[in-house]
């Protein structure tokens, strides 16, 4: 039955023959990560790991530490304690720079350049040419806007330009901070299809979001609150744990439960 379904549904993401040489161990490994900033503990000894080709959703209210965690994964955050290992190397290692793609929350692209000029510049930084840039623009559905100046685009289009600048390098790990903010439902669907396509090709994806209905599209969820992980499991685990069939309700209930004081024993095991 399992073999059949994988034949019907396309490539099995766990099959090394499809993914190329398998990475030994997890693609991402975070151990006792602590970040203090200005006397405040932003991340408090968190740990988790992600297998290659998985999509992990990072959820939590604003101020819960999502962006700090993402910055630590990319290696731009000064960390106080613990380790962050990406593809077997310490996060931020020079060798990771063309293998880890990072898309910041606010689109970090040049608003005075056209879409194509932006993506071609980042392609050149990764040692790639215009063909790869054009492919990445096509991947995010901006081919018809390629010649437009980025500053004249809608917020949603701008964040897709930013995404294209990361996708162009075909990274093995793709780290996305709230990539679907400001996108209409149809485009959000397209973006999630894109993330699943990348993951099916072996890319490990981490997506932060505070839109709970997107949580169902992840293989696995981490719920962050005040710098600690208060729930870790598949969407089904989280729902059954909260005893509801709505993600919104599940998160509200888990957050309230953690506020009531039971947070250290709150891990959902899958």
């Amino acid at each position: 039955m399992a073999t059949h379904s994988s034949e019907i549904n396309g490539p099995d993401v766990n099959d090394p023959a499809i993914n190329g040489p398998a990475i030994n161990g997890p693609a991402i490994e975070v151990d006792r990560l602590t970040v203090r900033r200005g006397g405040r503990t932003v991340l408090d000894g968190i740990g988790f790991s992600c297998p290659p080709g998985s999509i992990t959703g990072l959820l939590g209210p604003s101020g819960s530490g999502k962006t700090t965690l993402i910055r630590a994964l990319v290696g731009v955050q000064i960390i106080t304690d613990g380790t962050v290992t990406m593809l077997g190397m310490p996060a931020g290692s020079a060798a990771l720079r063309s293998r880890v793609g990072y898309v910041t929350q606010s689109p970090s692209v040049y608003s005075d350049l056209s879409v194509a000029e932006n993506v071609r510049y980042f392609a050149a930084v990764f040692g790639l040419g215009t063909a790869e840039a054009d492919r990445a623009i096509d991947d995010v559905g901006l081919s018809t806007a390629a010649r437009q100046v980025t500053g004249s685009l809608s917020g949603g289009q701008r964040s897709r330009v930013s995404l294209a600048c990361a996708l162009v390098a075909r990274p093995e790990v793709l780290i996305l901070d709230e990539p679907t903010v400001g996108q209409d439902p149809l485009l959000r669907e397209d973006l999630w299809d894109r993330f699943h396509t990348e993951a099916a090709g072996g890319t490990t994806v981490i997506v932060s979001s505070h839109v709970m209905d997107e949580a169902n599209r992840c293989d696995r969820l981490l719920l962050l609150r005040e710098g600690t992980i208060i729930a870790d499991g598949t969407p089904a685990d989280i729902l059954s744990r909260a005893g509801t069939d709505s993600m919104d309700e599940a998160f509200l209930s888990l957050i309230r439960h953690s506020m009531a004081g039971g947070r250290s024993t709150d891990e959902v095991t899958s």
């Binding site: 290696g75 880890v100 970090s108």
Partner: peptide
Amino acid sequence: TSGTLERLLTTPA
């Protein structure tokens, strides 16, 4: 301020 510097510093540049 646009974040492009931080982004570039995560690339091989």
